Computed example of a mutant assay.
Amino acid sequence: MTAQTPDIPTGAPRAVLADDERLMRDQLRARLAEAWPELVIVAEAKNGAEAVELVEQHRPDVVFLDIRMPGMTGVEAARQIAQMEVGEDDVLPEIVFITAYDQYAVEAFEQGAADYILKPAERDRLKLTVERIAKRLAAKRDAADEPGQDPSAASASGLPIQQLLHRLAASGGTKPAYLKWIQATVGQSIQMIPVEEVLFFISDEKYTRVQTPQVEALIRKPIKELVDELDPERFWQIHRSTLVAVNAIAAVTRDFRGRQIVAVKGHSQKLEVSRSYTHLFKGM
């Protein structure tokens, strides 16, 4: 893990670069210096775990992640980064994956909430990536300057990041086996709840509440594990502690503070959308 300590000009975009191959990091750093001279590489990582640690420490604007790294992969690191808490003045970083050519992965990127660079980094393709990311960062800054606007809503379009990560994880051609049943505590008994009946999941420090139209139950599995085990096309994460069934969303409104609030079909619960996930409803 290499932490850079450059003098960072005010307002300059900052990045963390993660690749287990030093030569690839050196090449990408050099190409980025050509394509995006304003960008400051604040730190470099050799694996996904280091990348997560450095993103937590430096809160960069962009993270360049090699998909295949030893230990924690780039996809797994991106999943943890997407779960990070952000403060009032922060948003999650833009994610750019570094990958060898893989048509399935490239198709996922083209629809998704992140960009990609093919190895080796070609100047023309890198220039396009830089233009896209710079435009997104500018949109975030503009949104931050406008009262009532949410910078995170300007982060990305298309497929939600969790769906993209699931597609990348399955890019070897094997479809993930998602949960079909939830074994949960209801009163003094254990019940098997079909996932298709669940309206939403909400976690606290110890338990996760499972809500169906008829039943409220508790499980010990945290949201960060459920995110990986549920079909991301059927359940969207809207808060670090909340997953909601897409077909259970009745409406999305804004409260007096400008926060997005999800109304659930057939239930009185109102679910807050955190700033990191407002892009899911960016038309609101």
Score class of each variant (00 low, 15 high):
Arg125Cys: 12
Gly112Glu: 01
Arg132Val: 02
Leu165Cys: 03
Asp142Lys: 05
Arg68Ser: 13
Tyr104Asn: 11
Ile95Phe: 04
Gly87Arg: 15
Gln111Lys: 13
His166Lys: 11
Ala105Leu: 12
Gly71Asn: 01
Ala138Cys: 09
Phe64Trp: 09
Leu65Glu: 10
Thr99Met: 01
Ile67Leu: 09
Val91His: 13
Ala139Glu: 12
Leu179Asp: 14
Phe109Glu: 06
Gly87Trp: 13
Val62Arg: 01
Gly158Phe: 00
Leu54Ala: 04
Ala169Lys: 08
Ala82Cys: 09
Asp102Phe: 09
Ile98His: 02
Leu118Ile: 14
Pro120Met: 04
Met72Ala: 08
Tyr101Lys: 05
His166Asp: 00
Thr129Pro: 02
Val91Gly: 06
Ala105Ile: 11
Ala139Asn: 14
Asp89Tyr: 12
Thr99Asp: 01
Ala144Val: 10
Leu92Ser: 08
Arg125Tyr: 14
Leu168Lys: 02
Asp145His: 08
Leu179Asn: 14
Glu94Leu: 08
Ala143Gly: 11
Asp90Leu: 12
Gln163Asn: 08
Asp115Glu: 11
Gln103Met: 03
Ala169Pro: 03
Leu165Asp: 00
Phe97Asp: 02
Arg125Thr: 14
Ala153Arg: 06
Gln111Asn: 10
Arg59His: 12
Ile133Met: 04
Asp115Asn: 08
Pro120Trp: 04
Pro160Glu: 03
Ile98Val: 07
Tyr104Ile: 12
Ala82Gln: 09
Tyr116Phe: 14
Ala105Val: 13
Leu159Cys: 03
Glu53Thr: 13
Ala105Pro: 03
Gln83Ala: 05
Arg123Asn: 08
Val96Gly: 11
Lys119Asn: 04
Asp115His: 07
Ile161Arg: 00
Met84His: 09
Glu131Gln: 02
Pro70Glu: 13
Phe64Pro: 03
Arg79Val: 06
Gln149Val: 10
Ile133Glu: 00
Gln80Asp: 08
Pro176Gln: 06
Ala51His: 10
Val63Lys: 00
